[in-house]
Write a protein that binds this DNA or RNA. Structure first.
Lengths: 204, 204
DNA sequence: TTGCATACATACAATCATGAATGTATACAG
DNA sequence: CTGTATACATTCATGATTGTATGTATGCAA
């Protein structure tokens, strides 16, 4: 029990976050004690309190390790003003869904944030971050649909705002359903299929 | 104090459930103690334990007071095999959204179930019920879309299953967003608008 | 080599929350 | 009119969790 090098400290920090993911996933955020996290990481609560102020900070760090990449996908998508905004958007959405299917860590964390977390009081901060993330996503969507609209690529009964809101709701609903029904809902198949049908309906 | 009449007992039971709604909404399910619920209902924990075995039973009773009506809407919809299945479906979905907007109790409870509840361990039973409910809803949707499909009322790129899954995801996503962003998302307007556009896209 | 900051482990006090046990007054059946 | 089940209130024992305080060994800088 002695001071470790900075690298090792970073390793224990990561071990703690990995442990938190597992325990949060199994028992939910509210019901896991810091002791459980510490044990799962093979350290004591001392280490936990050294690296994090409290459970919320762990939760934030855990979600920060994950959510930004997803946001990055959308940034990347919005950066290049392409001639085929709808195709780009569809592809980006599909990729985003695929990431959740293939990346087990992301899947666990998203599942924690959607089904194993209570957004109340101090935890509301985490929700704020999710909300911001979603809003920025929605903005990107809307901008792209507006581009498409200007180029007469959108069906007239799909104003850009409606399309953006619907797409986001569709995505979030699909993810939600796949996390609620991991056994009998195949997001890898249904997700892209639904998106394809949606985009086919949307474009002129 | 003393034994109350059966009517009064029923009243305290309802008072407990009302109190549970409020406290769950404010503090989340996991972090509210039975004492808090009792205090909010102006009784003691004795009354709580008399009417319910534990917190989960309270939660179940609370959700049972609410969710079945919504399901009823859909049952009602499916009962009459109409000549306009898509219009019926759209109307039923709109009505369902409107109920969440107008009925504050339903809104609170749904908000608790979606954002203030951790579906883990013993609470998984509540999730099972939600899942069943959603699956039955999906079945109804799919049956109606199949009817529409047989009558050539569906666009060819919308197979009934895809349409059903998408509609359910859309609904759930819209509700979710309105509960996450109660301030700057107007479900009463956006919900019907999105549904209208969706149904216009789906039908031939 | 000393000394300090680091990276934890350990110990402690205080605070709930739970479930069960027990008390109690009264509505109602007979 | 009496006894019993009811509808709670009160009390108690126990355990769990938290934050903090303190201990401690060591990496590293000077």
């Amino acid at each position: 029990m002695a001071r470790r090098t900075k690298d090792e400290a970073e390793k224990t920090r990561n071990a703690l976050l990995n442990a938190a993911e597992k325990v949060f996933y199994k028992h939910g955020v509210a019901r896991t004690s810091l002791e459980q996290i510490a044990r799962a990481a093979k350290v004591t609560r001392g280490a936990v309190y050294w690296h994090f102020r409290d459970k919320i900070e762990i939760c934030e760090a855990m979600s920060n390790r994950i959510f930004l990449p997803q946001e990055d996908v959308l940034e990347h998508l919005a950066s290049n003003a392409s001639a085929t905004p709808l195709d780009d958007l569809q592809k980006a959405c599909c990729d985003s869904l695929k990431l959740i299917v293939t990346d087990k860590r992301r899947q666990r964390v998203v599942s924690i944030l959607m089904l194993r977390c209570e957004y109340v009081e101090d935890m509301a901060a985490i929700m704020d971050r999710r909300r911001d993330c979603k809003n920025r996503m929605l903005d990107r969507f809307q901008r792209l649909f507006t581009q498409a609209h200007k180029r007469k690529m959108l069906q007239p009964h799909w104003p850009p705002q409606l399309a953006a809101v619907s797409l986001q709701a569709l995505m979030s609903g699909l993810i939600n359903r796949s996390l609620e029904n991991p056994k009998d809902f195949d997001l890898a198949k249904m997700g892209p299929a639904c998106l394809a049908a949606f985009f086919k309906s949307v474009q002129a």
